[in-house]
Design a protein around this nucleic acid. Sequence first.
DNA 1: CTACACTATGTCTGAACTGACATAGTTGTG
DNA 2: CACAACTATGTCAGTTCAGACATAGTGTAG
Lengths: 185, 185
Amino acid sequence: MSSTTKTPTLGFAILAVLARGDRTGYDIAAAMRRPVSYFWTAGHSQIHAELQKLLAGRLVAYETTHGPGPQDKKVYRLTPEGSRALRAWVTEPPRERPERDELVLKTYASWLADPALVRRLFADQLAVHEARLAEYEREEELFGEPPRAGDPRFGNYATLRCGLGYERHRAEWCRWMIAQLSDSL
Amino acid sequence: MSSTTKTPTLGFAILAVLARGDRTGYDIAAAMRRPVSYFWTAGHSQIHAELQKLLAGRLVAYETTHGPGPQDKKVYRLTPEGSRALRAWVTEPPRERPERDELVLKTYASWLADPALVRRLFADQLAVHEARLAEYEREEELFGEPPRAGDPRFGNYATLRCGLGYERHRAEWCRWMIAQLSDSL
DNA sequence: CTACACTATGTCTGAACTGACATAGTTGTG
DNA sequence: CACAACTATGTCAGTTCAGACATAGTGTAG
């Protein structure tokens, strides 16, 4: 660590985006809304605040150019320290985040409710997952040959594969639930 | 809603546990650590605070009995209003939680790091998922015949199925990553 | 009989996060 | 030329959550 601060995960998410090219806070927020499939999300207010901290820790720097808005436009870039910190962080084991899934919780309590309404809930969810799956499959086709491990696009492709697997698992579970609920009618 | 307060998801998690039987705050915390597979988690400090709010909204009530500790033991139960609120909540569409997965983020930035170290990271993760999978499979066997939709045990079984599918998807993704990284060495 | 693990309730601080508010230039459309 | 959408930065109040601190009776193993 360069000094006193321990960077939260959001900080590394920002560094990971900047590793692919210099950006403004606005651009980072846009990238994190959906890079290609999911990986992390944050509102712009959080990003601007975190950029201040990264700046204080000298993990990023910026150049001011004139642009729209009341303030000047700031284009951020990784510093060598930032790049080093990011590379070191990548291979460290991730800290477990507690599982908090509202649909699973509803499922846990689903024995209390009208099976027809629960069935409807899962049918809606299934539609959402199938739509996302179709979208991801379209994106997958755009890659053609899977990129190699040293290529930045490998990161995009690998997260896309994760998203693809997740949506398939989720859709299958929804279908199973619907089948179970149909049996009990 | 009974009055002014909108109950957060944690509140419904507590109600869902109480729907299966009266419990103390301590018991609820223990149940939510791992009911059978995952569904929601919270520390006891959060649970005690939330129980106060549920109490104020008259969704739960309690009886005091003498027990260990400086305070008396409080056994909470659902009120009719609580039961009604829970049942109504179950079939409402879940609000989307933002995706925040540290391993996926690391994957997104993995092109920067030493492939051998990334491979190690995923091998460790694979071991974790395989261990959980084995545990869930053991739990699945204990059920024998899948419970029917009106049975409280259906909730447990259905969440277990979700956990099972999730761990399989995750393990498969880890294996795919390891294969990709082995190719590039 | 002593020590430890477990039961049991609660408070408090700080970090992480959400959503609203505030401001204003640029670019493209009708 | 007016208006909307997009670019762009920031503040602030409130909520959620994790982890530490505080306290103390009960049951069990050595």
